Amino acid sequence: MSGTHFLIVILVAAFINTVFYVYARKKLGISKPPWWYKPVNSTQGLVEVVLLILLGFSLLRFPPEIMLIFYLFVINGFRTFMEWKYERENKQYVHYLFSTFLSLVIFIYICIFI
Rank of each mutant, 00 (worst) to 15 (best):
M1S: 12
M1N: 10
S2Y: 04
S2F: 04
S2D: 10
S2T: 09
G3D: 03
T4M: 09
H5V: 03
F6T: 09
L7W: 04
L7P: 03
L7V: 09
I8N: 08
L11M: 08
V12N: 03
A14S: 06
A14E: 06
I16F: 02
I16H: 02
N17A: 09
T18Q: 10
T18H: 13
V19L: 05
Y21E: 08
V22S: 02
V22H: 01
Y23S: 10
Y23N: 09
Y23I: 13
A24I: 04
R25L: 01
K26N: 01
K26C: 02
K27F: 05
L28Y: 02
I30E: 09
K32F: 07
K32Q: 07
P33W: 07
P33Y: 06
W35V: 05
W35F: 12
W35K: 03
W36F: 08
Y37W: 09
P39T: 06
V40W: 03
V40Q: 14
N41K: 07
N41Q: 06
S42Q: 09
S42R: 12
T43C: 07
Q44N: 13
G45D: 07
L46G: 13
E48D: 00
V50G: 00
L54F: 00
L55R: 05
G56E: 07
F57D: 01
F57E: 03
L59R: 10
L59H: 08
L60I: 15
L60S: 11
R61A: 12
F62W: 06
P63T: 15
P64T: 03
P64H: 02
E65C: 03
I66S: 01
I66R: 01
M67I: 12
M67C: 14
L68S: 14
F70P: 05
F70E: 05
Y71R: 14
L72S: 00
F73L: 11
F73A: 08
V74W: 03
I75V: 14
N76I: 07
N76M: 04
N76Q: 03
G77W: 01
R79H: 11
R79T: 05
T80W: 15
F81C: 05
F81L: 12
F81W: 11
E83Q: 13
E83P: 07
W84P: 09
K85P: 05
Y86Q: 15
Y86N: 15
Y86C: 13
E89G: 11
E89Y: 15
N90I: 00
Q92C: 02
Q92M: 10
V94T: 13
H95K: 13
H95F: 12
Y96C: 11
Y96P: 07
Y96M: 12
L97H: 09
S99V: 15
S99P: 08
T100N: 13
F101Y: 06
L102R: 12
L102H: 07
L102M: 11
L102E: 02
S103K: 00
L104R: 15
L104A: 12
L104V: 11
L104E: 11
V105T: 01
F107E: 10
I108P: 00
I108L: 04
C111S: 02
F113S: 15
I114S: 13
